[in-house]
């Protein structure tokens, strides 16, 4: 019971962070929000009793945030020059 309510709250948070990340105008900020999104997703996976997936998602989200950050830095290079 609590589990279900908790999960739906978590999903709501995921939804909101994800939407903000997508619609935030600033690129770097949305990258950061995206990492928050990933964190909540990891929580949700844990809640769904899938620790294996959660673990994978955790390490992968680190990597993908790193990808995003690197890429965003590369993308902004041209704008500054």
């Amino acid at each position: 019971m609590m589990f279900v309510i908790f999960l739906s709250l978590l999903l709501l948070i995921i939804l909101i962070t994800g939407l903000i990340a997508v619609f935030l105008p600033r690129l770097f900020g949305s990258g950061i929000l995206f990492s928050a999104f990933s964190f909540f997703v990891v929580l949700a996976y844990l809640l769904l009793s899938a620790p294996d997936v959660a673990f994978t998602e955790a390490v992968i989200s680190v990597i993908s945030i790193a990808y995003y950050v690197i890429a965003i830095r590369e993308l902004r290079k041209g704008d500054l020059e």
């Binding site: 999903l11 995921i14 994800g18 990340a21 997508v22 619609f23 690129l27 949305s30 995206f34 999104f37 997703v41 949700a44 996976y45 769904l48 009793s49 899938a50 997936v53 993908s64 995003y68 890429a71 965003i72 993308l75």
Partner: peptide, 24 residues
């Protein structure tokens, strides 16, 4: 285009959540 990619990740996450719920 970057935002598009993020939105795509949202989609993929949704699918994964859906699948995990199935095994629940």
């Amino acid at each position: 285009l970057v935002k598009k990619l993020m939105a795509m990740n949202l989609m993929q996450t949704a699918v994964i959540l859906f699948f995990l719920l199935l095994g629940q």
